[in-house]
């Protein structure tokens, strides 16, 4: 039942995108997201679409997996679109009934906003789908290393992140097991009012907390037994090293950003109101 949750899920496959250095994927995802939000023309979005299609094809992740991530933001998406559609007052009026007015600008902004949000989710899920959580934290740690100079404990933060990520599936599985065990003892988790349902969570939450603490304790012991004492002087078994494909990826993404920007600026492609 609880296995269905897919936030930050990794999709195992062997593709160029999977093999890229995590730093490349993080930086490029950021660049892509920025390019989406500075974009304000149809031609720019056409190029962004082509670029996304290209990356999705290269990643070998089935399209429906990527779309799954969109389910989570469907409410936010509808809210944004509706708000932009009805609350933008500038521009020529397209439609007017009772207290609602839809203007050309409103329609334009809400469509672009929807595209931005959808591409934002697709772009970032592509990153998490093709990068293992461990590689991702490695990448973040390496990218944030300059902050060490300002006494930010980058290694510790990255370690906390990777442990947290590592424990999500374990705790989900544990929750599933405890839920089943209590249901087998006749626990009723679905019916009743708010208070009854909250009360029904106690037999699940108490064992879950106990087990989370037990696991944390075991992990701390295991780490100490292997002489873990923070990031100082620690080396990596597989240090991140840029390879040729990583530079190529940077070049492609930068080329895309420049192309999208130039196209938006000099060939905005006007069709109707867009």
């Amino acid at each position: 039942m609880i296995r269905e949750i897919t936030i930050g899920q990794y999709y195992p496959a062997d593709s160029v995108i999977h093999r890229l250095d995590p730093r490349v994927k993080i930086v490029c995802t950021l660049l892509f997201l920025i390019s989406l939000f500075v974009q304000n023309s149809l031609s720019g979005y056409v190029i962004a679409t082509l670029f996304l299609v290209f990356v999705i094809r290269a990643s070998k992740v089935p399209f429906r997996f990527i779309v799954k991530g969109l389910k989570a933001i469907i409410l936010l998406l509808m809210f944004t679109v509706v708000m932009n559609l009805f609350l933008t007052k500038e521009g020529a009026v397209l439609l007017h009934f009772w207290i609602f007015t839809i203007t050309e600008n409103g329609l334009r902004i809400s469509v672009f906003m929807a595209i931005r949000l959808i591409y934002l989710i697709i772009g970032s899920s592509l990153m998490t789908l093709t990068t293992t959580p461990n590689a991702l934290t490695d990448g973040i740690e390496s990218l944030l290393r300059p902050l060490n100079r300002f006494r930010v404990p980058v290694h510790e933060v990255a370690m906390i992140m990777s442990i947290a990520l590592r424990f999500i599936p374990i705790l989900l599985e544990e929750t599933d097991k405890i839920m089943k065990a209590q249901i087998a003892r006749g626990a009723d988790l679905e019916s009743g009012n708010m208070i009854q349902r909250t009360k029904a969570m106690v037999p699940i939450l108490v064992p879950l907390f106990v087990s989370a603490f037990r696991r944390a304790n075991d992990l701390a012991l295991a780490m100490e037994a292997r002489c873990y004492c923070g990031g100082e002087g620690r080396t990596k078994m597989k240090p991140l090293v840029y390879k040729r494909q990583d530079y190529a990826a940077y070049v492609i993404v930068v080329a895309y950003v420049v192309l999208a920007f130039v196209a938006g600026r000099f060939a905005p492609l006007h069709i109707w109101i867009f």
């Binding site: 544990e174 097991k177 405890i178 089943k180 065990a181 209590q182 249901i183 087998a184 003892r185 006749g186 009723d188 106690v202 037999p203 108490v206 064992p207 106990v210 087990s211």
Partner: peptide, 19 residues
């Protein structure tokens, strides 16, 4: 629910369900 009280299932490490 009736079935579950007829067929009692003790999970692996059942002590993890004590609360």
């Amino acid at each position: 629910k009736g079935l579950r009280s007829q067929v009692g299932l003790v999970f692996q490490y059942p002590e993890h369900q004590l609360f």
